[in-house]
Design a protein around this nucleic acid. Structure first.
Lengths: 223, 223
DNA sequence: CAAGGCATTTTTGTATGCAATTACAGATTG
DNA sequence: CAATCTGTAATTGCATACAAAAATGCCTTG
């Protein structure tokens, strides 16, 4: 399944959804996308199906596809699970990371530090991803890493809202430092706990998070 | 997407995979399935894609689909994550279950007891599912419940091997009893811990588990 | 007899066409 | 004037047709 063209379509659409070019709730009709990408409806359908399986788009039978617009309740549920998964990654990483992997994590942390000191918030976004990726690698559980990455990706449109908060970068970096210390010390419980609170909404202001949500996210799109 | 026919195909194929009618590694070519179900290849393709997204089948570009045959390492990774998810469900359920939900859990447990006393191992399989479903409901996190259910389903071909062990039913029931007690007592940590060990391979004999694996599961099918 | 190359055959990937369902708009009626 | 009904347009679901790639078997050749 999934020829090269389909994979490319998935990649492009996923990127546009994750970065917010395609807003939650926006309709994705097959014909338009097919014309836009210069292919037939068939690969577009497959791409939409794949995106639906990751949860990024929502398809309702006979009613077409749209960028997923989870309600507030569902978002909180997903954050709750993500916190647990990230924590587990950290817990396992603290126990299992090799010397090289620990060095890579430190390097990623230093890249974050560089961005922080220069106030490069765009750069920090990427460096932050690299830091967490280093932890995923270090947990030595590819399945867990993939699940966590997928959920992280799915929530990224909403996580970006948080990261834009004033001083959130500095806060995030400070939290990374503690996480790094715990992992290097091999303190699994602490790494778990710190990572959970790091990715949790409650780390910031919950009211701000809700207030910055795109309109319509306060109820189910499928309602 | 996903018309009625596709949904039905997914349901049937999923059932056949989970119950072992279709063995891990078995090839699933589109034309044969299309003839068998009396539909064209298009809905079959969609169904296979959906099953691929849940991990039950594996599709390699230009090389067709086959029932997923995860290697031992990957299986252990999945069990590790499932233990965590089940534990989290129990943790949340202990804190959040309503009175009716607690009653339902007790009822499910009693159904398990009936099967145990009558040595009805087939019946126990279903009652066991109901017990865990009651916990999923009680965690009040539909997303988590869905993720856990999906992973449980994906692992069910391998879990059944465990359940067939002598006395495993009795062991399982005794563990349920402890889980039930912890949840009713609102002891979240204990419920978490007990459920994790309940679904973990290490609960039984690891060697037996490995020995009963279908041939070929000791290495990656995609290797 | 074994190994490699070539043609055939099978299977997947994509395009297109048709049928069925749904959304929309205008008209009709209470 | 509001609500409902109906006809039309638009969109999805499925089937079929064609193109491209990979698997298979046979033949040639060393």
């Amino acid at each position: 399944m999934a020829g090269e063209r389909v994979i490319e379509l998935v990649r492009i659409l996923e990127q546009e959804i994750v970065t917010g070019v395609l807003a939650p709730g926006e309709r994705l009709d097959e014909a338009s996308l097919a014309t836009r990408f210069g292919v037939s409806r068939t690969p577009v359908r497959e791409a939409l199906n794949q995106l639906a399986s990751t949860g990024l788009v929502e398809v309702r039978p006979r009613r077409g596809a749209a960028v997923a617009a989870p309600g507030l309740k569902e978002l909180l549920e997903m954050f709750e699970v993500m916190a647990e998964l990230e924590g587990l990654c950290g817990r396992l990483a603290a126990r299992r990371m090799s010397g090289e992997e620990r060095a890579a994590l430190e390097a990623a942390h230093e890249a974050c530090q560089a961005c922080t000191e220069q106030g490069d918030s765009d750069g920090y976004y990427g460096a932050n991803v690299a830091f967490h990726e280093a932890i995923y690698t270090g947990c030595h559980n590819r399945f867990l890493a993939e699940q966590t990455r997928a959920l992280r990706n799915r929530l990224s449109p909403y996580r970006r809202l948080q990261l834009r908060r004033v001083n959130r970068i500095d806060e995030s970096f400070a939290e990374h430092e503690a996480v790094l210390a715990a992992i290097l010390a091999g303190d699994a419980d602490e790494a778990d706990r710190l990572l959970q609170s790091h990715v949790t909404v409650q780390g910031g202001s919950f009211a701000d998070f809700v207030a910055n949500l795109p309109v319509g996210s306060d109820r189910q799109a499928t309602a």
